[in-house]
Simulated scan of single mutants.
Amino acid sequence: MNPEILNGLHWSATVDRVFQENFEGDSTLAWQYFGAQTGFMRVYPATTWYVPPNLIDLYDARLRPWYVQGSVSPKDMIILMDRSGSVHGQTFTIMKWAVKTLIDTLGENDFVNVAAFNSTTEWVNNCSYCEVNNTTDNLECTQPLVQASTTNKKLLFQAIDKLEDGGMASYTNALTFAYDAFKQFEGTRKEGEGANCHKTIMLFSDGGTEWPEEVFKKFHADNYTKSVRVFTYAVGPHPIPTAVLKQMACSTGGKYSVITTRSSVRTKIQV
């Protein structure tokens, strides 16, 4: 077993006493959980972990709503997907998987939407109607951001799967679109809409050389958008120059990550 996990199991052993004390104080507690950033989990009362025959155990406590809501604050999030011609084949497949994994980490306290860009930028769903569970339903897109509910996630997944690559990428256009969407959302949202907490742009690309300096100058001077953090992901087996992606993240207090394979998605996508 991984030494990091073994060490975690050792230092977290004291949690068992807390579980027992909690149960003694409230006997209605059916289950208690503890999940760690390294991926292991403690359950009280103990139970035999069941894995269906011939299947791989892909359960990850870090993707469960109780872990997400307990470890991070609610977020208003706009995801930007580079769908230019250079993002094709395996790179685009990895990107779609990564974006869907990211959306899966969100809970109903989060608000999200996904836009795809090349020389222009548009929402992936674009308020179109989709078939979900044999009923006609559409993304609740009267606002730029929608609640990360199960239904809305499913609609976004379907729209992401239909994306095709082509054209040239423009970071300036994409970031302007995202910042303007945040401003529109703030000006039109009703009470209870939006997380009203952290605001983030998650940009997935295979890299580029365009530095959108004027965009950051403009929106960093705006009281509402100056707190938006940009997280960037260089995607694909052979990403092209990524210095600009790093600079975007560093200049806004975000984080830069590299995703080269589908197997690395789960460890890189954490919010």
Rank of each mutant, 00 (worst) to 15 (best):
M1C: 02
N2R: 15
I5A: 06
W11Y: 14
T14H: 07
N22A: 10
E24Q: 14
D26K: 07
A36Q: 09
V43G: 03
T48P: 03
D57W: 03
A61M: 04
A61I: 10
R62I: 06
R62F: 05
S73W: 10
K75Y: 01
D82Q: 06
G85K: 05
A98Q: 05
K100I: 02
T101N: 15
L106K: 12
E108H: 05
E108I: 03
F111W: 15
V114R: 01
A116H: 10
S119W: 04
S119P: 10
T120D: 13
E122A: 14
N126C: 01
N126F: 07
C127E: 04
C127S: 11
S128I: 07
Y129A: 09
T135Y: 00
T142A: 11
Q143Y: 10
K162W: 15
G166P: 04
Y171W: 08
T176H: 02
F177V: 04
A178D: 06
Y179A: 12
A181G: 12
K183D: 13
F185G: 11
E186M: 08
C197N: 15
H198R: 12
I201K: 02
M202K: 07
L203K: 04
G207V: 00
G207N: 02
E210H: 00
E213I: 07
V215N: 14
V215D: 05
D222N: 13
N223L: 06
N223H: 04
Y224C: 01
K226A: 14
V230H: 13
A234T: 14
H238T: 03
I240A: 06
I240Q: 08
L245S: 04
G253T: 05
G254K: 01
G254A: 08
K255M: 15
I259M: 14
I259F: 09
I259Y: 13
S263K: 10
S264D: 07
R266D: 05
V271P: 09
